[in-house]
Design a protein around this nucleic acid. Structure first.
Lengths: 212, 212
DNA sequence: ACCTGAACACCGTTCAAGT
DNA sequence: ACCTGAACACCGTTCAAGT
């Protein structure tokens, strides 16, 4: 009875265990629903009104937490970058000190995330550097990719990688992965198992990046 | 007066030089306006009603030529694949018989198209293999990429490229380009000139693809 | 054969007003 | 501080009807 949804006219200080008058946790609920919607239909099919309906508030309620649709997308991308950064960091740690092993570990970790959450990763990259993106978002992207940069720099110091701006070298390597994932997401790899292809790509990357 | 827009009650058999009653060329006009809209704001911001307004017909008129929005996007992608195919073919012919030169030529041609028409290229890949895509579209994509496949196969025959399924080898190379273009489109290359980076990527690709 | 106009069910965004 | 309801200007899609 107390937990029912009829507003019984009693005052409700700030917190109640029952169904929400003020919902109490709307921001988090919208983000969770948003991530589901993202994976279900991509960023361009995400509807704020639909999220509000799912969560059980009026269509104008999200505005308190996200001024517009883009703000919600930015928040989703930000959280994605933060989780990716942690994943890449863990991959480097698990791989030990060898450059080839690190590159393989990073590649596998990234491809794993990108194939399990393709729409989120697409959103992350689309949002990161676009005109008028929030500085916080760009910074989160930089932080997330820092482990890969550091691995390249270490590889150069150990003589396993061609010299030059680590960022440029890393981008060359990263581009190949990014492209592979894009092709996989678009179904262009058909029957070829992604993991097999991935190891092949990484092997050729290592060869291509070795000093001559 | 005759060319004015007021319908003067006279009958108009089928063709008139004045302003259109039936427009006469609506399909082409929509495609042209669609390509402009695509480059201006990406596929997800393309509005059928806006195209109809630009072209000067009612919002329901496009339906005769394109049953829905996706049909217009498919037609744009199809024309993009056809033009890309011709461009890649020309690049191979211009590059002569050497594998390295062909790969560089193909890469430059593709990157040129992809940077000048990023939204169109994104649409092409997004549409090519998606669930329920028209077979004609998939076939056009295959045809467009055939010159690159052939170049790889020739390279293998000449001993310049690792053996194996040419499609798989081509995909590895193509993935790197695709990724590079994606990064460039997203502004992640910052100040680095794309052409310089491109030549570097191709050089490393050649190295990575060489038989050991 | 090709196009119009009105209608329907959706959007994102805004703003006064409620508790 | 947080949310609602009504309103506005847009969509894509459908369908009868016009020429």
């Amino acid at each position: 009875m107390l937990a029912a949804s009829t507003p019984t006219g009693t005052l409700h200080p700030v917190t109640t265990a029952a169904r929400p008058y003020h919902h109490g946790n709307l921001r988090e609920a919208l983000l969770r629903a948003g991530e589901r919607a993202l994976e279900a239909g991509g960023a361009e099919n995400l509807s704020l009104r639909e999220l509000a309906r799912e969560v059980g508030v009026s269509h104008a309620a999200p505005r308190r937490h996200f001024p517009d649709r883009q703000a919600l997308l930015d928040a989703l991308a930000l959280s994605g970058w933060e989780r990716l950064g942690a994943t890449l960091e863990a991959a480097v740690l698990a791989a030990g000190d060898d450059f080839d092993a690190r590159l393989l570990g990073l590649a596998r970790a990234y491809v794993d995330v990108a194939t399990r959450h393709p729409a989120l990763v697409a959103l992350m990259f689309a949002t990161k550097h676009q005109a008028g993106a929030s500085p916080a978002l760009a910074a989160a992207g930089e932080r997330a990719l820092a482990p890969a940069l550091a691995a390249v720099a270490d590889g150069q110091a150990a003589g396993a990688v061609v010299p030059g701006d680590p960022e440029q070298v890393a981008i060359v390597a990263f581009a190949a992965l990014q492209g592979l994932v894009a092709l996989a997401s678009n179904g262009m790899l058909d029957d070829t198992p992604l993991t097999a292809m991935l190891d092949d790509v990484v092997e050729r990357l290592v060869l291509g990046l070795r000093p001559r």
